[in-house]
């Protein structure tokens, strides 16, 4: 090895300073670029229609009004009904919460079995489930419609739930399987010697370890199901539409004047729950990561 004592850094302090600030400026510009639409949405949603017509798109509101928000929530018209987003928002909650819970539980059990209770054909089944992740939504529309019809669930929230659970299992299984393969096999063996059975080991030993991956699964599934439009528009009927479909209907209703402020408020309302999940669960995610890093 060469002697390092005579080494002098080529880059001066000033050069390092410029590089760092250059980086900040570039990152700042990107952040502005991405935040611009949100800014426009927020400002537009609290402007009056009059101000939108006369003012500039990126100007700050001269006077703030929350009327568009109230209208978007409870009065905006989609098609022939004028109840705002509210009923559809609750449809989405009714749809997303059980779907996320069910697909996460099934994924956890699948991952546990595939990663820890090795059985003949486990890899094949995992590969097939994985393949399910790559099937485009459009491909399953017709077979799924037929299935729902046969089950008598067409146009209902439970039907839509079933679609999302089935579609989500591939992803949740993948998450949990990849998490559980990193857990040493000795842990399962020790529990077996201690006399614990299949479910006991899962509930007492594996689930408490799984906080970080449960949070990942919840964030992923909630975002997918809440934001889904295609399944929602295909498999729901007038009373069971999720919020995304309602939002589309409100924005595309062409009766009377185009109320941009109401449209913007509706869009933000529809996006709020996913934001909330990221903010709340993201914190648990980090906490879960550090708690789970305890090695056995």
């Amino acid at each position: 090895m060469s002697d390092l004592s005579g080494y002098t850094p080529e880059r001066t302090d000033w050069g390092r300073f410029a590089l760092r600030w250059g980086l900040f400026v570039i990152l700042g510009l990107f952040a502005l670029w991405y935040l611009a639409p949100l800014f426009v949405m927020l400002t537009t949603s609290v402007k009056t229609l009059e101000e939108i017509r006369t003012g500039s798109l990126i100007a700050l509101p001269r006077e703030i009004t929350f009327e568009p928000w109230a209208k978007a929530w409870s009065q905006a018209c989609s098609g022939i009904t004028c109840e705002g987003l509210r009923p559809y928002f609750f449809n989405s909650i009714l749809l997303a919460v059980p779907s996320v819970a069910i697909s996460t539980v099934i994924g956890a059990l699948n991952g546990y079995v595939i990663a820890q209770w090795r059985f003949r054909g486990a890899d094949t089944i995992f590969a097939l489930l994985l393949f399910g992740c790559f099937i485009p939504f459009q491909v399953v529309l017709l077979p799924m419609a037929k299935m729902l019809g046969l089950l008598g669930l067409a146009g209902t929230i439970p039907g839509l739930m079933l679609v999302h659970v089935v579609y989500g299992i591939g992803f949740t299984t993948l998450f949990f399987r990849n998490f559980y393969v990193t857990i040493p096999a000795d842990l399962l063996k020790a529990a077996k010697v201690d006399g614990a059975g299949f479910l006991r080991i899962f509930v007492s030993i594996f689930l408490p370890l799984s906080v970080p991956i449960v949070v990942v699964s919840i964030i992923w599934q909630f975002t997918q199901i809440w934001n889904d439009f295609l399944f929602g528009v295909s498999f729901s009927s007038a009373g069971s539409q999720p919020v995304t479909v309602a939002l589309n209907n409100i924005v595309n209703s062409t009766t009377g004047v185009k109320e941009y402020n109401v449209d913007m408020a509706a869009a933000i309302i529809a996006a709020l729950p996913t934001l909330l999940v990221y903010v709340v669960a993201g914190k648990y995610f980090i906490r879960g990561l550090t708690a789970g890093s305890v090695k056995g």
Partner: peptide, 17 residues
């Protein structure tokens, strides 16, 4: 294993974390 009246100590200790 549970019926064999054995106890086992593992290389990785396998403590429940």
């Amino acid at each position: 294993p549970k019926d064999r009246d054995i106890a086992m100590v593992f290389q990785s200790y396998a403590l429940y974390p």
